[in-house]
Each structure stands twice: as structure tokens, then as C-alpha cells.
Design a protein around this nucleic acid. Structure first.
Lengths: 256, 256
DNA sequence: AAGTGGTCTAGACCACGTA
DNA sequence: ACGTGGTCTAGACCACTTC
């Protein structure tokens, strides 16, 4: 077993056992080098291991700290509910965030884009066919939280507010319904991977933080009408689905 | 911008553009060093970046290759179906894998374990209370694919085959139903993160591969009866959920 | 100014795989 | 035997943060 791995195991053990609680400062490279009588690069490699496990974070000039987590839970099975409730208008993301007592913020743009193969097959159009892309970079308070890209087929978006570069106040799902495109079913796909450099920049994630990828295709009774790809920071998010009858669970959460 | 980052960007561009297709060999450290007139460590750091993005894989003595992906799709909304179909007996995992034309294999063990806080709160028992843990390391053909750990509360498992260290042929969900514990609802939670060293060993994943974590809590009409934590290799798996009416999608998949 | 991490190099030796 | 990657060191210089 190599020196730096032993050192990494040592440090990991100290972290998970609570000797270094979340947020606490870790020894400097020089200090650890003296303490274990190893070169500076060996210490750096040990810390690199832990960084890529998502355990610690580094700031130049300030040292390393144990990462502290915060998790936002999103109920995917109730998100963009198929039946609109009376009180809930506007887009689902803002509602969810405000409901959690946090301040939502988003940067928004609309583009015309030739459909990539992955999107085209889901929307039932030809690869390269023009689609309308509505893109959001979403913040909770001031932390970048997720990106969301929704593709609409041209046959649907053309001549509607979907294709215009403005926010749709009442929410796009509701607006689509007003246009006569009632979404009656969703097909969701979930995967995870390391972020691309672009995603890492947008979401401000360093090494060791994967992204959770959520692709939702929305259907009317006849056909697919939109495909939404949401990229979540893996450290900050959790998705949930309720299936079947969960009376027993709700009883636990809302004791009378 | 540092040298090794520029070099990494260069190489990434060549990989995603198809100059180095999946499975192809990449230049050796020495060769790249000569080509770009940089030291060996700089080349290594560039390759480390791509490795941690999950783009390439390394074998000592044999060089580096572009990783090639394969993805197994699991339909979580139909998995362990609440209504048993006639033809489907045995556990859901084996069925899914065989249905995909692959050979399933699992290593299996049963333990008594004090409930960790995360499990206890989901099962509605006290932290540290004894639970029965049924653990599986699952392979598809000879590749480790996922681990699955199901915790059962002692009040349910005691004196049943759940607590015995043997496979349950007909599937645990069906066996539980026979015992009078009909699962009528599931609560699913999804997240992702980098694997712990233990998980990396079990699943044989190197750096740059996150895991997808799926926690399913099963409920009868009265209470939670089990909590299943499945850890998937992030590079090999995708989960799907169908919500609402998807006639339009099924029509696409099964054209008459 | 002093301490922290970030980049880069040269050199040495080891471990693994192929031939 | 040779080429590949893996580990470790010492030294130099830079960039950022804090005081």
C-alpha cells in the first residue's frame, strides 16, 4: 500500500469519526509533511484523494476544510402536478423553493437549436430538426443549484409565447394546457455522472461532486410535447417519488 | 491557464470530437511529453483531470484508453410491481436482467444489524434497534453492477424466513405478501455521490465514476415494512419512472 | 511579511504487462 | 528486456489570503 493512500485512509478515518467535523480546518501540507515525515507532494496526493471523494474542499491561501452538506429534496412525483391545484400558479421550481423558505432566482434564455439525437428521439422528431430551447440556470439564495433545459418541437412552439424570449408567468405547463396541449403523462429518466467543464462552471462545483441528471418527457394523449433535462448538483439535491398508496407514510408525517 | 489544464482541454476536445473513439488507446506519458515539450508530471496531471471526469481509464503496464459506456435501464415504477403478474415469479432483479438477455449472478448474505439513523427513521424504529439486513452484491454477466441492502424491522422478520440466511426463491416481496404484509405503496429517494472506498472495491469502480443511490421504503396500509438501499454504478445504470397516462409513448414503442 | 495552496520540473525507483 | 504507468522526493516559483 502506497504512502499517500495510507495517509488518505488515516485522514478519512479522522474525518468520518468526527475528529474533524464538517466545516473544520485541516492541517496544512507543510504541517502534515513534518508530522508524518513525508514530502509535500505525498501529502498533496493524499488530500487529492479525499477531494475527489467529495469529502474536503480547498481554497488557495486559506487551506482545506471538511465539506459540509445541505440537501434540498424535490418530490418529482408531485412536481408539475398533472392536476393543477387552485392556489398554485407560476412555475413549480419557484414554488418549491419558496415553500422551503428560501429565495429562488433564475437566469433565463431562449434559443432555437437543432435537436441533438438524444432529444430528437424523445420528442419524436428528426435529429437536427429545429427545436425551441428554453434554458434556466437556477439559484437558491445565491448558490447555483441546477440547470434546466426544455426542448419543444417547432410544430408546437411556432407562433406561441413558448418561442418568445420571455418568462411565462403562469408556468409553461399551464400555458401549454391553455393552448390545448394537456400533459397527461410523464416519462422520467435518471442517471448520474461527473460534470462537463461547462456544467462545472455553471454550477460552481469543484472535483468530487457528481451531477444528477433528470430527463422528463411530457406527453399529451397523442404525442410527446416537450423534453426537460435538469442537471442538479449532486451534493445539494435529492429527488423523491411516491408510488401507490402511502396513507401510512402521510400519517407518520402529519400526526393529528 | 495552467499548462496541464490546456493539455487536458486539448485531449478532451480530441476525445469528444471523435479523434479518439471509445476504446481507443491514448498516447503514452513519454510520447505526449515529447510532443508538447512538457515534463512527465504535467502530462500525468492532464490525464488525471480526464480520469476524474470519467472519460478515460488506465491500466498499469498497458496505457490509457477512452472509456466505452454501456447502460442498463431499470424501470423503477414497474420494478417490484405492486400487482404481481401471473408469469413473473422470483426476484425482480433476476427477471430484469434475464429479460435484457444477460446473465444475472449475486453474492448474498444476511446479518443482524443495529439500525443506522437513516434507516431507523424510514422504518419507524429506534436508532440502534436490531434489524435484519439482507445484502446482495449483484453482477450482470461478470461485471459488478450494484449492491442492494434491505433492512427489515425485527417485529416483522423474527421467526420468518426473512431472518434466515437463505435465498427466498419466490422473491421477498411475494413472500412478505404471503405473510400478510401486502406492500401497497413505495417511497423512493434518489441521490448521487462519489463511492466510499468500500463501495469502490465492491463495485470495482475507479476514480471519476459516481454512484446512483436509490432508497425505497415499502409500506403496507399501516406502516413501513422494509427499506431497500440500492447502490448503482453510475456509468452503467439509468432508472426510469412512468407517471400518469403514457398511451402515446407506448404507441410509439409498440407500433402495430 | 508570512503562510497557505497551485504549478512545473528532473530524477529515481518500483510494479505490471507484453513479447 | 522493454515500455507502460505508479510512487516518492527535492526544489523552485507563483497566486492568493491574512495580518
Amino acid at each position: 500500500m502506497s504512502l499517500y493512500r495510507k495517509l488518505a485512509d488515516d485522514l478519512r478515518e479522522q474525518i468520518v469519526s468526527g475528529d474533524f467535523p464538517p466545516g473544520s480546518e485541516l492541517p496544512s501540507e507543510a504541517q502534515l509533511g513534518r508530522q508524518f515525515d513525508v514530502g509535500r507532494d505525498t501529502v498533496r496526493r493524499a488530500y487529492d484523494v479525499l477531494t475527489h471523494e467529495g469529502l474536503i474542499e480547498t481554497s488557495q491561501g486559506r487551506g482545506r476544510r471538511v465539506r459540509s452538506h445541505e440537501v434540498f429534496v424535490l418530490d418529482a412525483s408531485r412536481h408539475e402536478n398533472l392536476q393543477f391545484s387552485e392556489e398554485e400558479s407560476g412555475d413549480s421550481y419557484s414554488n418549491e423553493v419558496r415553500h422551503a423558505g428560501r429565495r429562488p432566482h433564475q437566469e433565463f434564455r431562449v434559443e432555437l437549436q437543432p435537436a441533438p439525437a438524444t432529444i430528437a428521439s424523445r420528442l419524436g422528431v428528426q435529429t437536427g430538426e429545429t427545436t425551441v430551447l428554453r434554458f434556466c440556470l437556477r439559484y437558491v439564495d445565491t448558490v447555483p443549484w441546477s440547470t434546466q433545459a426544455t426542448h419543444y418541437p417547432m410544430w408546437l412552439a411556432d407562433g406561441t409565447r413558448i418561442a418568445e424570449p420571455h418568462d411565462i408567468e403562469e408556468g409553461t405547463t399551464r400555458y401549454l394546457a391553455e393552448l390545448g396541449f394537456d400533459q397527461v403523462g410523464y416519462h422520467d429518466e435518471l442517471s448520474c455522472r461527473m460534470p462537463t467543464p461547462d456544467e462545472a462552471r455553471d454550477l460552481e462545483v469543484g472535483p468530487g461532486i457528481p451531477v444528477l441528471v433528470w430527463v422528463r418527457t411530457g406527453y399529451t394523449a397523442d404525442r410527446a410535447v416537450r423534453c426537460t433535462t435538469t442537471i442538479f448538483r449532486g451534493d445539494l439535491n435529492r429527488l423523491t417519488y411516491d408510488i401507490g398508496d402511502l396513507q401510512a407514510r402521510q400519517a407518520r408525517d402529519d400526526p393529528r
